[in-house]
Design a protein around this nucleic acid. Sequence first.
DNA 1: AAAAAAG
Length: 798
Amino acid sequence: MPRPTPHGRKAAKAPGFKPAKKGPKGFKADGAAKNRWSDDKRAAYGKGPRKQWEPREDRSSRDDRAPRRDDRTDRAPREGGYERRDDYRSDAPRRSDAKGRNFTAYEPREGGFGGRAPRNVERGTESRGYDNRGERPSGDRERRPFNRDDRSRDDRGGFKREDRGGFKRDDRGAGRDDRGFNREDRGERRTFNRDERPERGPRKEYRPARAYDAAPRPKWEPRAERKPWDRPERPNREDRPRFQRDDRRDGVPADERTWRDDKPRFERDDKPRFQRDDKPRFEREERRSFDRREDRPASENLDQMSWEATELGEVDDSAVVATEGFAALGVPTKLVAALDKQGITSPFPIQTATIPDAIAGRDVLGRGQTGSGKTLGFGLPMLTRIAAAESTGGAPRGLVLVPTRELALQCADVLAPLAKTLRLDLTLIAGGMGYGPQLRAFERGVDIVVATPGRLIDLLEQGAVDLSQVLVTVLDEADHMADLGFMPAVTTLMDTVPSDGQRLLFSATLDGAVDKIVKKYLHDPITHEVDSDRASVTTMEHVLLHVPPHEKNLITAEIANREGRSVLFCRTQMGTNRVAEQLRAAGVMAGALHGGLTQGARTRILAAFKDGSVPVLVATDVAARGIHVDDVTLVLEIDPPMNHKDYLHRAGRTARAGTKGVVASICLPHQRRSMLRLLGAAGVKAEQLNAHPGEEELADKTGARPVDGVPIEDAEYERIIAPKRGGGARGPRQGGSRGGFGGRSQGGGYRGQGGGGRRFGGDRDRDRDRDRDRGGRGGFDRAGGGRSNNSEGWRRDR
DNA sequence: AAAAAAG
């Protein structure tokens, strides 16, 4: 059969078309047809007559060639009766997968694996040229015209085996195969002989991933074996100093104690250690912790902090003009004078909008951009109304609920002096602080409560609080309080306060989740939105930094090393610890703030940030909302926020009340799409920048400076963070470190068991500190077992 | 699946 001409080939495709007998041989470059020579002409040029094409001698029978590895004779023919691989291609077993797609199990390529399709082959032409198998086995099956490494299967998702850390094929020696089929049949990579192995570049030099520290990693050395006789001599049991509780409480840090009484604290007397008790174990534990809480002095053991209302002193309201500023909104002259004394004279838009309605007693939904003065927006009307109402003899009449302890502190600090001028008592109820003051406050009588939900419910269950007289309830950061994790607590409290009271909901972002609360608890609410909830703070500049992963740490450090105060946001507690440590190692004074620290540590680091001794705060979203620190000129998002609301709240830590600020977000390549979408949803027009360490552009935008790399010693940092005597935060001992910060450096990392393990003896509080430090939830968490603390909420949602 | 909120 003659070789098909181009025409003949094309023609054969069209159904029912008879190919021309003899087309031109081909076409010259100018388009002229190439004609075949007649036999005469061939003879004239010294060529013989044209030969007919003949099939090559069939050499495919086995006997004619050297045996190959995959010639298996010891195996029965496959189902279907074929023996040769070539045979089963056309009618190979078809399968359907779970989604109903059909595919052929596996088709080895004739050309081997190194081959490549010719460039000019179009998909869909009858013969693909690069293999001569003839018809495709299945017409509807898409087949890629290039050579795919069938092993990779990267279109299926998931990982390749090597990525999962499994064994590497090449480890097993070339050609070795003991699993029945050869590798190509299994869809695995072909093995190479030594000399046909593809060329590889020179071996890359290993570069350590350690970012900053130039000091060489200390070499591991085996610890000297300690024999019993090497141990320091221990005094006799009777001679050892016995620490009574009082000794422990003050002065002597756990690490400096020479000996610890090895009996557990609660069984110090002569009871046998493991006393049998007919009560089940958990009940015994319950009772013990209850005893402890009752007995415990406020500052004992826990790194707590205390709060006291600040006073403004006497204010003179004689000069207040009733038609100006706050007075015109209906705020009593006493309050106006008190505000004036603090330099607050003219109301912000959100305040102008909400105060009159709220004073009139309406339910208000208030939305104002971050840093726009929402606290006074609900605080002033609440105070006004309560001052005007008749006393209830000590039961609280105002309730402000906030999502974090810091925010509760801040809110109480703002409102307490104002309340004082109206002779109202305001108290702060929040977790992580002593029960004593809070219980006493309620005994004394309270007018206004600023609280985080958890502790307030705790006190409610103890019967210490009576919320039946509450006139005004405020939800600050309402959309956050409507979050899944908060919702149960919030509804509990909202159900407890009288249903005919006034409710005020405030946040910078209000959304769908709030609607549930609004529908259930608000009566005929009026909504005041002085701005859109999208980014509208004009003094805020947004920069999106595209950063290669290996430069992220250095860029973070350089930006943190800028002048002025910066807040850095991370996603996890551990992340903040790590970044803060890295920054200090690079010579930038930075501290971590997250909910896993003791309350004292949290308060101290925030105080250090506010007074400027620690200019860089690395925080989780605990600091994302509401926290006000003056002159924060940059917010850096080290990890992207969960959603656009979080972005706006984080960003709102800077550019507050009309000041300027930059919001920079680090964006790794894989975060681009989500980050851009998020910025779009936030309504942010961010400038994008390919950032690299040391580049001028980065410095222009963020003020980044190179780091000097001289590490800040832990001791130096701890000196700043250490509990100040007589300060607002009281620790269990003087000097040194104990709370959330000393634990790791002194405790030698994560030594020992998890917090839940040690039931008796030891210092439970210290255990918990360490647990908190490493971001885990210790064994004291109700949720227990390291489970997410809102896992119930998620489950309910499903 | 993080973080926050009670101990």
